[in-house]
Design a protein around this nucleic acid. Structure first.
Length: 678
DNA sequence: TCGCCAATAAACATCT
DNA sequence: TAGATGTTTATTGGCG
């Protein structure tokens, strides 16, 4: 009986196939149905900040409604009161200095406050949609208010002119002045209301205030934002979200050095959360502070600008410099239906990608778990799992396991290197091969043995997984890991059993193989000392047999090609997986959003880079290049070899794919040794 | 299909 | 004398 390893599963498949079906069911079942979604801190933060932003924006919206009502009431009072003007004769400030629209605008939250509120938020598409609708309503109201204020101001100025020229209509003038005063009083009330709301938010933890932020809840009216600025800020917020999510997981927050809107605001407090992040820079046009920033800095960090091209989804307009990019951004990607729709689409893309990532992670985990379960199945998989090519020991070897240890119950973590190497991990045959099929395994894919063993130490120790290296490589590694770079045969045995659970079984087989390799390969030198015979590694011999020059070694070139070829099925798999899980994403891609293609190409580049890095890393960290190994003394075989025997087999440790680990001496005795490859 | 090569098996010798 | 150690040969099977 096998028990499914899924935490939420209680099914106990009675056979391997049943278990496999069960696992397949798990794989096909949406994650939400089988176990809770992995809780990512970022996700939680997103939700929290979304609520925060939502509350604040709703508040702004409601505050504007209140303002509008007040103004309407004022307008009605003005119409009703008619000539009942106050008898004040003193000059009102509003009369001396025309009341600006900004003064009259009920935007009491300063840019700093707004930015502080908004700087951390990441909205879900649904929430953004709601907010965008609110935003549109907000803009509409702002426009109405603005028009109303303008009318009022025009009337006022007209009256002032008339008064100056004709000295007439003092009543109307006073009336308007009173009206303006009333406006200010009402706005002050609103301001206080807003302050209370902000304090309330602050108390609820929905609004964090920087310690150095002076008088956050309340700012003078003169420091409020004009509607245009607010509109810009809204744009910036939405665009910044788009940009932030476009850039993926860089967790960039808004760079408020580029979003400091009002120069009049006492923005002494630096609100920069991430100096490398940026926004779309829309506000830099009218902010001296932003203009002080170098455009190179912008262009280097702006997620929507790179290589002289606007990276707005589906745009790719060529912008010669950052300035023109900003103009283009402001003109072509202003806040309109198209941009908001694209923003929504982009958010869906990101969401789908995150969902896909979560699913694939889960799938990977299930695969790992599944393979471990399979490796410990006593019936179906009596042989230890071979990571490379599912080597199953021969019948006699598997039967002759006097030192077999019980299977380790621990669940080892998956090997790092083979996973990242991709093809070196599991072949399709490993899933289906049954019986004593002996398959060749070697140091494939240029995995540096030392790093692989170091990275996957726990895995190899706990899982009966055959290390993807030849016996010769392992022997050499064992010797080199020893303090004196020499080991007795028994110590080599111990190293094998200590480091690899796989070698805790079938001792007769692999020990024979170890002895065979020690004798076979010239690079292993037997040295007699006081302890008896110890084995060392002859690095010269070892390095002689590493024809790894990429430019000249066809096997390496082939390996490189196969590495690249691996990317193609991976892309296909990725896209198939995406298609399987995210139709909207495909819709997005079909709309011309290059995200999917970019993602695929990015992954392809990453893989290529990884492969190249692996190759270079391998050559760097290859045994032949190890400084430690380079200084290792060369031992001479005490037993003079017969010339015929000297042609015995040797192996390569870290040659390319399908290259021999250790080539026979015979093969290299007459071949020119390419020293460049060392 | 063939050759190469690592893994495996086994025989044999030598040593402890 | 048994077991460990070391050597050699043959076979198998993967892979280019």
């Amino acid at each position: 009986m096998f028990q499914c390893v899924f935490s939420s599963s209680v099914l106990q498949p009675h056979s391997t196939s049943c278990l496999f079906k069960h696992l397949f069911y798990h794989s096909a079942t949406p994650a939400s149905q089988k176990q809770p979604e992995p809780i990512y801190s970022k996700k939680t933060e997103i939700q929290r900040q979304t609520v925060r932003a939502h509350s604040v924006k709703l508040f702004i919206f409601s505050a504007l409604q209140v303002a509008r009502q007040l103004l309407l009431q004022q307008q009605q009072q003005q119409q009703v009161s008619g000539l009942k003007s106050p008898k004040r004769n003193d000059k009102q400030p509003a009369l001396q200095v025309p009341v600006s629209v900004a003064m009259m605008t009920p935007q009491v939250i300063t840019p700093q406050q707004m930015q502080q509120i908004l700087q951390q938020q990441v909205l879900s598409p649904q929430q953004l949609q709601v907010l965008l609708q609110q935003q549109q309503a907000l803009m509409l109201q702002q426009q109405q208010l603005q028009e109303f204020y303008k009318k009022q101001q025009e009337q006022l100025q007209l009256q002032l002119l008339q008064q100056q020229h004709a000295g007439k209509q003092p009543k109307e003038q006073q009336q308007v002045a009173t009206q303006q005063l009333a406006f200010q009083q009402q706005l002050l009330q609103m301001q206080q209301l807003q302050q209370q709301h902000l304090l309330s938010l602050q108390r609820q933890g929905l609004l964090t205030i920087q310690p150095g932020q002076p008088a956050l809840p309340l700012q003078p009216l003169a420091q409020g934002m004009i509607p245009a600025e607010l509109q810009q800020l809204w744009k910036e917020v939405t665009s910044a979200h788009t940009a932030e999510e476009t850039t993926g997981n860089n967790h960039s927050s808004l760079d408020l050095t580029t979003t400091c809107v009002s120069s009049s605001a006492p923005s002494k407090t630096s609100l920069i959360m991430n100096p490398h992040a940026s926004t779309n820079g829309q506000l830099s046009v009218h902010t001296p502070k932003r203009e002080s920033l170098s455009h190179e800095e912008h262009s280097h960090s702006h997620p929507l600008y790179g290589h002289g091209v606007c990276k707005w989804p589906g745009c790719e307009a060529v912008c010669e410099d950052f300035q023109s990019f900003l103009k283009h951004l402001n003109s072509e990607h202003a806040l309109d239906d198209r941009s908001t729709a694209q923003c929504r689409v982009q958010m869906q893309v990101v969401q789908q990608l995150e969902l896909q990532l979560a699913k694939d992670k889960e799938r990977l985990q299930a695969m790992m778990t599944h393979l471990h379960v399979k490796s410990t199945e006593p019936k179906a998989a009596p042989q230890p799992l071979n990571l490379v090519s599912s080597v199953t020991l021969s019948k006699s070897a598997s039967e002759a396991s006097p030192q077999s240890l019980p299977h380790t119950p621990t669940t080892p973590t998956a090997p790092i290197t083979p996973v990242t190497q991709g093809p070196s991990v599991i072949t399709t045959t490993s899933m289906h091969t049954v019986g004593p099929i002996r398959r060749r395994y070697s140091d494939k894919y240029n995995v540096p043995i030392s790093s692989d063993i170091a990275q996957n130490q726990e895995f190899y120790k706990n899982a009966e997984v055959r290390p993807p290296f030849t016996y010769a490589s392992l022997i050499r590694q064992a010797i080199l890991e020893s303090p004196e770079k020499q080991l007795t045969l028994n110590e080599i045995y111990n190293w094998f059993t200590r480091m690899f659970a796989y070698f805790r079984r079938n001792a007769a087989t692999w020990k024979n193989a170890v002895r065979h390799n020690l004798s076979l390969h010239k690079c292993f030198v037997r040295v007699e000392n006081v302890k008896g015979a110890v084995w060392t590694v002859d690095e010269v011999e070892f390095q002689k047999r590493r024809p790894q020059k990429i430019s000249g070694n066809p096997s390496l070139i082939k390996n490189m090609q196969s590495s690249h070829a691996y990317c193609t099925p991976l892309n296909a798999a990725l896209q198939a997986s995406m298609a399987e899980n995210s139709i909207p994403l495909y819709t997005t891609a079909s709309m011309g959003n290059p995200t999917l293609g970019n993602l695929a190409s990015a992954i392809r580049e990453e893989l290529n880079g990884a492969m190249e890095h692996t190759n270079s890393n391998e050559s760097d960290s290859s045994p032949g290049r190890s400084p430690m190994q380079a200084v290792h003394p060369v031992h001479v075989k005490e037993e003079p070899l017969d010339p015929e025997e000297a042609e015995g087999p040797l192996s390569l440790v870290t040659t390319a794919n399908h290259s021999p680990d250790f080539d026979h001496d015979r093969d290299y005795e007459d071949e020119p040794v390419n020293e460049d490859m060392e």
